[in-house]
Simulated scan of single mutants.
Amino acid sequence: MADDKQGRDEQADDEKRRQREWMQEEARTRSDEEEPMRVDPSERLGDLDEALKSHDYPATTTELVEAYSEYELETQGGKKSLEDVLSATDDQIYDSAEDVHRRILGLIGR
C-alpha cells in the first residue's frame, strides 16, 4: 500500500474491521459463560451501604458488628451476615464508610 492519505485511511478501516470482528468473536465465545456477581458495590451491600454511610467514624470492627450484625451480604458462596464476614478479621479501626466498604468487598470477593 502506498504511504499516502488513502493508504493510511484504508489501513485504519482494516484495523477497525478486525477489531469489530474480534469483539464479535469474543462475544460469541463468552455467551455460554456464567454471569459474574453484580459489580456495583452498593448493590452488593444493599441496605448496609446506607447504614454504614450514616454511622459515626472512626469505628472498630467490633462496633460495626454490634450495630449491623443482622445485615446479610451477597458473597460468592451465598448469603452471609456481616458478623460472619468480619469475624475472619482482627478488630480494626475504620475512618470512613468507604474504608469499611473496601474491607467488606475484599472479604466477600474471595
Rank of each mutant, 00 (worst) to 15 (best):
M1C: 14
M1A: 12
A2D: 15
D3I: 10
K5L: 14
Q6N: 08
G7M: 05
G7W: 04
G7S: 06
D9C: 11
Q11H: 08
D13A: 09
D14N: 12
D14F: 07
D14Y: 08
E15P: 00
K16G: 06
R17L: 02
R18H: 06
E21V: 06
W22E: 09
W22I: 03
W22M: 03
M23R: 15
M23I: 02
Q24R: 15
A27Y: 05
T29Q: 15
D32S: 15
E33Y: 10
E33V: 00
E34S: 06
E34L: 12
E35T: 10
P36K: 13
P36M: 09
D40L: 14
S42I: 03
E43L: 06
R44W: 06
R44V: 08
L45Y: 06
G46W: 01
D47K: 15
L48K: 04
L48A: 00
L48Y: 05
L48E: 00
D49K: 02
E50W: 11
L52G: 01
S54A: 11
A59C: 08
T60K: 12
T60C: 14
T60S: 13
T61W: 05
T62P: 08
T62C: 13
E63A: 10
E66W: 13
A67M: 06
Y68Q: 02
Y68M: 02
Y71H: 11
E72S: 10
E72W: 03
E72N: 07
L73M: 05
E74S: 15
T75E: 04
Q76Y: 12
Q76T: 11
G77L: 07
G78Q: 01
G78C: 02
K79E: 08
L82Y: 03
E83T: 04
V85E: 00
V85S: 06
L86V: 03
S87N: 02
A88P: 00
A88G: 08
A88N: 08
T89W: 07
T89V: 13
D91M: 06
D91I: 02
Q92I: 01
I93V: 04
I93E: 04
D95C: 05
S96L: 01
S96I: 00
A97H: 09
E98W: 10
D99K: 01
V100A: 01
V100M: 06
H101I: 10
R102T: 14
R102Q: 15
R103T: 13
L107D: 09
I108K: 02
R110M: 07
